[in-house]
Amino acid sequence: MARTKGYPEALEKKLADTRLYEDERHPEFTKTVEKISMTIPHMCFQCGTCTASCPSAPRSSYRIRKFVRRSLLGLEDEALTDPDLWLCTTCYSCTDRCPRDIAPTDVIMAMRNLAFKRDIIPVNFLKTVQAIYTTGHGVPNNDVNRAARKKLGMHPDPPTTHRHPQYIKGIQYILDYFELKKNADRIVKEREG
């Protein structure tokens, strides 16, 4: 963690110590990321092939190479609190091209999993969870679409959980097993009241 200097707040911020200190490093973080992602970010040699393959990089400060580096060094806080973590479109172009055969996309996914454990997660992800809990679908049916389906001679609801809602309780069981709905509701409430 950055060293505090006891200055007035504005100066403390302006002159914050930017050096990397050993105590920022959490080797456990490297191992956990590797276990979840099933890939090898510790082998990164920082060639930048990933960033150059990334559709998000040219329009943001998101640098996937930096996240792989943070994972290698165990810079847990820096990685998980960086809002750029959520700009990966999971296109896997970096994974296809990485010369060290790392899957940087899966490193990002693992870090997002770890961020969620700290309640760091954009709300839209949780709303998908809530939708699926209720309907079984992330993008549920609506009246306009039902009318269109009828016009096509189709059943207004597809033969999914929409037409067979008895299957929803199985889905709810799985989400409750991981306490996902509970946590999603809690976090959404905290953010949106």
């Binding site: 920082q46 060639c47 930048g48 092939t49 990933c50 960033t51 150059a52 393959s53 990089a57 640098r63 190479r65 172009s93 091209r97 010369p99």
Partner: peptide, 21 residues
């Protein structure tokens, strides 16, 4: 390291995508 190269089909010039790390 160069991630990929695209060709401009008209000029046959090459667009190099890399990161200045």
């Amino acid at each position: 390291r160069v991630a990929n190269i695209l060709e401009n089909p008209d000029t046959k010039n090459l667009v190099i995508n890399a990161e200045d790390t």
